[in-house]
């Protein structure tokens, strides 16, 4: 982390890392999608629609991953005062929100044949919806603040407040509606999903995660450039 403290060094390192990450993402997607479509069998109950899971589950996982990443970055802003922490938090927000939206839309599409409706007030879908609202709140708060260091601190506080509250919201929504099937991938007694489905799922999850990291690095680099441009503009305005 210390080595990355310098934005220039971060730019150099991320620049040399990006092509490899992008390539890895492409390969993982090729393998993952091939498996999802041709190797993994159709579900005996759900038929072909089960394949939407290969997008839905990774997206839902990344929706939570995104907020966790923002929370760590927020600690970086408030506690360690790391110069790149706010850039990381800012770049993660729209990507996290996008994956949350993907999780919602795919969940809705999956729900149509499963439940017979586009939307069901199912506990997980509802939690994800609230998570999306919180992402939008973070983005809106940042947009409303024009002083960057102030925006960094306030957004970090909101993010951490959300981090504390999200498990409580999740619990309350679960408690409110326990209609959904219980967790099936990560169980103490081992996964109950057949390996033919589990392996493609994990490959796809890895592919999506790599995509997230790639996009995040690109987003951070873009944001760093934007801030440099702003700094130069400010300096140009000062010169007489």
């Amino acid at each position: 982390m210390i080595a990355l403290a310098n934005p220039a060094r971060f730019n150099a390192l991320s620049g040399s890392l990006l092509p490899w990450l992008a390539g890895l993402t492409a390969i993982l997607f090729a393998v993952g999608l091939y498996q999802a479509f041709f190797v993994s069998p159709a579900d005996y109950q759900q038929g072909e629609t089960v394949r939407i899971m290969f997008v839905h589950v990774p997206a839902a996982w990344l929706a939570m991953f995104g907020w966790s990443l923002m929370s760590i970055a927020s600690l970086g802003v408030l506690v360690w005062r790391h110069p790149l922490a706010d850039v990381a938090a800012q770049a993660a927000a729209p990507i996290g929100a996008a994956f949350t939206l993907i999780a919602l839309v795919t969940g809705s599409l999956w729900g149509r044949p499963m439940w017979g409706t586009w939307w069901e007030w199912d506990a997980r879908l509802t939690s994800v919806l609230i998570l999306l609202l919180m992402y939008l709140g973070v983005i809106a708060l940042r947009a409303a603040l024009d002083e960057p260091s102030r925006a960094a601190r306030l957004v970090a506080i909101l993010t951490l407040a959300g981090f504390v509250n999200i498990p409580i919201i999740k619990f309350s929504v679960d408690w409110w509606n326990t209609l959904h099937q219980p967790a099936s991938v990560f169980r103490v007694d081992g996964p109950t999903i057949h390996p033919d489905i589990l392996v493609p799922l994990l490959v796809n999850a890895l592919a999506f995660t790599c995509l997230f990291v790639t996009l995040h690095l690109v987003g951070m680099r873009t944001e760093l450039t934007r801030r440099r441009v702003r700094g130069l503009q400010l300096r140009a305005a000062e010169e007489r």
Binding site: I130, L133, M134, L136, G137, A140, L141, A144, L145, L154, I157, L158, A161, G162, N165, I168, I169, F171, S172, V173
Partner: peptide
Amino acid sequence: ALTVGLRRGGLLLPVLVLPMAVP
């Protein structure tokens, strides 16, 4: 506290608070 001094703070506030108030 997060929206103090913002021009559209009154509008932003419910957007930030409502999801948190769900439980």
